Computed example of a mutant assay.
Amino acid sequence: MFDNQLRELTDDLPGLEKQLFADYFEFRRGNYSRKISAAYAGNYQGETHEFAYHFYHFHYVDEREVSETDSKGNTKTRKVYDHYDRFGIALPFRFIRQLAISRKAISGFRGERYKPSSNQFNRLFKVIAESEMTAARFLKPAVVLACEQAANDFKALNLEFNQQAGLCMSFDNKKVISGEQRYDFTSPEAFMAEIAQTTPLAELQRAVAFIHTLMVYSDNNFKKDVQ
Rank of each mutant, 00 (worst) to 15 (best):
L159S: 02
Q205E: 14
Y217Q: 08
Y56L: 15
V127I: 09
A190G: 05
K35E: 14
I177W: 08
Y24N: 06
V144W: 04
L201H: 01
V176R: 05
A202M: 14
F210P: 02
E17C: 03
R137D: 14
V61M: 12
D219T: 05
A136L: 13
C168V: 11
R110F: 04
M169Q: 06
L214N: 02
M133P: 03
S170V: 01
D11I: 12
F109H: 03
L13V: 05
T10K: 15
D12L: 15
I195M: 04
A129E: 02
Q45K: 11
G88F: 00
Q197I: 08
D225P: 02
L167T: 02
L99A: 05
H57S: 15
D219E: 01
V80W: 12
R94F: 14
S187C: 04
L99F: 02
H49W: 10
K115P: 01
F125W: 07
D12I: 12
L9W: 05
E50M: 06
A142P: 13
Q120A: 04
P116V: 00
L13W: 04
A193D: 15
A136C: 10
S118Q: 07
V176K: 02
F191P: 00
F185P: 02
E148C: 07
F25G: 11
G46H: 00
K155F: 10
A207Q: 03
T69R: 11
A22T: 13
A202L: 14
K223Q: 12
F185L: 13
H49M: 08
D184A: 01
S187W: 11
M1C: 07
G42K: 00
L9M: 07
I177L: 11
R7D: 06
Q164T: 09
D23E: 15
N220Y: 14
F58G: 04
Y217A: 04
R113K: 07
E17V: 03
H49P: 03
Q205F: 03
V66I: 15
D153W: 10
E194I: 00
H83Q: 14
A190R: 11
S118C: 01
Q164G: 01
S102D: 07
R78F: 14
G88Y: 07
V144S: 05
D184S: 05
R64Y: 15
F154V: 01
F95G: 08
F87W: 13
A193Y: 13
E17G: 00
Q120W: 06
A129Q: 08
A156E: 09
A90T: 11
I106F: 13
C168R: 01
H212M: 07
R28F: 09
A207V: 08
K155E: 15
L139E: 00
D85I: 05
A193F: 10
R29K: 15
K155Y: 10
D184G: 00
D82Q: 14
T213Y: 12
F51P: 01
N162V: 03
L9N: 00
V127T: 14
S218F: 01
F21Y: 06
G73P: 06
Y84L: 09
N173K: 10
Y32L: 12
I128Q: 09
A196L: 15
F55L: 07
S117M: 11
L167D: 03
A142M: 15
S37F: 12
Q5C: 09
H59L: 14
A202K: 12
A52G: 10
S67K: 14
R7K: 13
A193L: 13
A22H: 13
R34T: 06
R29Y: 12
